[in-house]
Simulated scan of single mutants.
Amino acid sequence: MQKISTCLWFDGNAEEAVHFYMSIFKNSKIESIMYYGKAGPGEEGTVLSMTFQLDGQQLMALNGGPQYKFTPAISFFVSCESQQEVDELWEKLCEGGEKGRCAWLTDKYGVSWQIVPTALGDMLQDKDAEKAAKVMRAMLEMDKIDIEILKQAYAG
């Protein structure tokens, strides 16, 4: 068990969201489910919270109600090793959500994600400042990150 994990506050659809995320990320599982009892405040027998893993990362989903909403101030940063992985995660997480700029998207539950190829970080940290600047300029023009375009900017 992780000492620190993220808790996501949902408005009655935590279980649906957990199953959606688990369908996208490998190495995922539900660890535990807690239900509201007679004391409430939710309807007895409905999901209060779920502890789960996405690709080995422990998270919690809470059906807390409509008081709080997700914002892009907190996002999940997903490191991808290939364009295929970027494409797959981007398309699945965007389904019903909203595409953003520079690797950002908001899924259909309002959760923000950054789908980033590891190659981007490598190029941005290059000792050649001009190469890194070219990559940055290319990235700033993108929604979903395209590794081949980054490579062209890097080489150019």
Rank of each mutant, 00 (worst) to 15 (best):
G65I: 05
Q53T: 14
Y21L: 04
Q125F: 12
S23W: 02
V18Q: 00
S5M: 13
S23K: 07
E43P: 05
F52S: 08
G42A: 08
M142P: 09
F77H: 14
L140I: 04
E98P: 00
K92C: 03
W104D: 05
V86E: 06
F52A: 09
V47Q: 05
V47D: 04
G37W: 04
V111D: 04
I145N: 01
K26L: 01
Q83R: 06
D146K: 11
W104E: 08
Q53E: 12
M22F: 00
E148Q: 07
Q114M: 13
W113C: 04
A17N: 02
S112M: 06
P66G: 06
D122S: 12
L120I: 01
E148S: 11
I149F: 00
A132L: 09
Q84E: 15
L54Q: 01
L8Q: 06
Q125C: 13
I147Y: 04
S79R: 11
D87G: 03
G121S: 04
Q84I: 12
L105A: 08
I4P: 00
I74N: 12
Q152H: 12
A39E: 15
S23R: 06
I24K: 08
N13Y: 08
Q152P: 00
N13S: 10
E31M: 10
K38A: 15
E81D: 15
K92L: 04
T118H: 04
K127I: 03
V47C: 07
S82L: 02
S5G: 07
M139W: 14
K108R: 15
E148K: 06
S28I: 01
M139T: 11
E85R: 07
G100S: 05
A17I: 02
G56F: 00
S28Q: 00
F77E: 06
R137A: 15
I30C: 05
Y68V: 12
G110T: 01
V18Y: 00
